[in-house]
């Protein structure tokens, strides 16, 4: 059994914020309805976060990573997710040998 207190704090913080989201919407909908622009912003949040997360690697690391990101996106629109992940990762390994 190995528990690191900082790891534990981070994990419990993650759990708390996630439960707050799951129950927050459920409880609040009794009093307010999220519609229109506010709902559009909430819906866009996950893709916006994921985009921001890939930016340093996909756009600011090197040509191998940028091209491999493009290959992954191309594959993601045509293949099952797990296959697209493998294709993209294989692409970066190959491209790093070349460039």
């Amino acid at each position: 059994m190995s528990f690191d207190s900082i790891h534990l704090t981070a994990i419990l913080g993650m759990a708390a914020v996630t439960l707050a989201m799951r129950f927050g919407g459920y409880l609040l909908v009794r009093y307010v309805t999220v519609t229109g622009r506010a709902a559009a912003a909430m819906e866009a949040m996950p893709v916006a976060v994921l985009t921001a997360l890939v930016v340093p690697t996909a756009l600011a690391t090197g040509p191998a990573e940028t091209v491999a990101a493009a290959v992954t996106l191309f594959a993601a629109w045509r293949l099952p997710i797990i296959v697209a992940v493998i294709v993209g990762t294989a692409a970066v390994v190959a491209l790093r040998l070349v460039v």
């Binding site: 996630t18 989201m21 799951r22 129950f23 919407g25 609040l28 909430m42 949040m45 996950p46 976060v49």
Partner: peptide, 12 residues
Amino acid sequence: GLANARYFLMGA
């Protein structure tokens, strides 16, 4: 929290 924000709408 940001990545899980959609649960707010899903829970609702």
